[in-house]
Design a protein around this nucleic acid. Structure first.
Lengths: 225, 225
DNA sequence: GCTCGCTTGGCCCTTTGGGGCAATAGACAG
DNA sequence: CTGTCTATTGCCCCAAAGGGCCAAGCGAGC
């Protein structure tokens, strides 16, 4: 394991506090109104969430492109629609490939077309200013829950994919066929190899996939695709 | 099999044509503007879809409560938001328990709040008048596709549930345990019965569920819940 | 009382799965 | 060139699943 060269300062107490907050949930707020950002930050931090604020989508995109490490945990975006240069909907489009961070949009002056676009593009909600604090918190809570679930799902898939990739090509082939319900003998005939060989690969595959029943194998293969 | 007493007139040629259209897709349009309804009907029928029109949500609800038989096939609702008595959003709420018919809302005068409400309540899209014919057709095509998929899904589940219910209590119990990966002997011990008995029930269950491999059993049980 | 379906279980045999032990052969990195 | 990894296979043994044949106990309904 190599040392990460990006670590260049010691961990402070505030880092630890931030980490705790991030574990509960992190709200990334984007609005060109500085006062609103302050108010949002105050509200979310009072609730025990971490909050990052950006006064424009451009700054956020730049920060993201630097790809600096963040504490793990659920995360959501809360973004104003009406902003100069890059507006909320445009930002949503650009982040779409990133994909798994739930997005909340808010606006005071937008019409139905903007709201509809936002939802079509996958926004989790569209809040109309002025927004009641409770409404905002409910939306954020839900968004963070969605985020947590997606992250869990993704972690699980990656875990399984990693295990599956640690199999040899032959083992994968046999695992797939086993999960389709083919018998060892069928597989042996199909691949033109001996029964004993199929058994060995099957055995190896199940060991590497950390399953010990056929049922679990089926579930694991099913979860991956 | 008993005769259905609700059949009281012979099948006509136009019935057959309607049935063909319904199989392609049926659009239920609700708008208080008679001209719009005419235009919608013309558009959808030109595309080969069946189209029912209602000039108010009240009439639609009444028609639904009579529960008369309709031809099977994918179906979607296309409903104006701004209507007297019961508006589009209210109709959406009332039909929500019905649940599996995709809903498209349209409006010329609504704002972001209405659009957001519609999406939160599960609307598939929210179209802003004036709507281009192509936009409308695209939305309807998508809604019908969703409907078809839901119907297929539901049919499959009902089919499987019916099979599962045709099992005896004991057979269900054993099928569940088998699908959880328990071995016959484990099950026998857990239920305090002989191995042979478990085998018999297992065998019966798989026959009734129309599966012949353990893998298929797992999939069938999985699809049901 | 009797039949029918559900549940139960014993006996026995075959097929399939699981796994140890040993060995051959090709590919590839060091 | 050598050691490691992968794929392959044979032989043997045991456990588990699949299934035929037969039969008893029991509650529901005729």
């Amino acid at each position: 394991m190599t040392r990460n060269p990006s670590i260049r300062r010691p961990i402070t107490v505030s880092d630890r506090q931030l980490a705790e907050r991030c574990a509960r949930g992190r709200v990334v707020a984007i609005d060109d109104d500085a006062e609103i950002l302050l108010a949002l930050r105050a509200l979310f931090e009072l609730e025990g969430y971490a909050c990052e604020t950006y006064d424009s989508a451009v700054v956020l995109l730049q920060a993201l492109s630097e790809n600096r490490p963040v504490f793990p945990g659920p995360c959501c975006l809360l973004c104003d629609v009406r902003m100069p240069q890059i507006d909320g909907l445009e930002l949503q489009r650009r982040l779409q490939e990133l994909g798994d961070v739930p997005m909340l949009l808010m606006s005071g002056s937008s019409g139905a077309p903007e709201a509809a676009s936002a939802f079509r593009a996958g926004a989790l909600d569209f809040l109309i200013k002025p927004i009641k604090a409770q409404t905002l918190l409910d939306a954020v809570t839900k968004a963070l829950a969605v985020s947590a679930q997606r992250q869990q799902q993704r972690a699980r898939r990656e875990e399984l994919a990693a295990r599956f990739n640690s199999l040899t090509e032959r083992e994968r082939e046999i695992a797939r066929r086993v999960a389709l319900g083919q018998r060892n003998l069928e597989i042996a005939d199909a691949l033109g190899i001996a029964l004993r060989t199929v058994k060995r690969h099957r055995q190896q595959a199940m060991e590497k996939l950390e399953v010990d029943t056929l049922v679990d194998l089926v579930h694991v293969i099913g979860e991956m695709k």
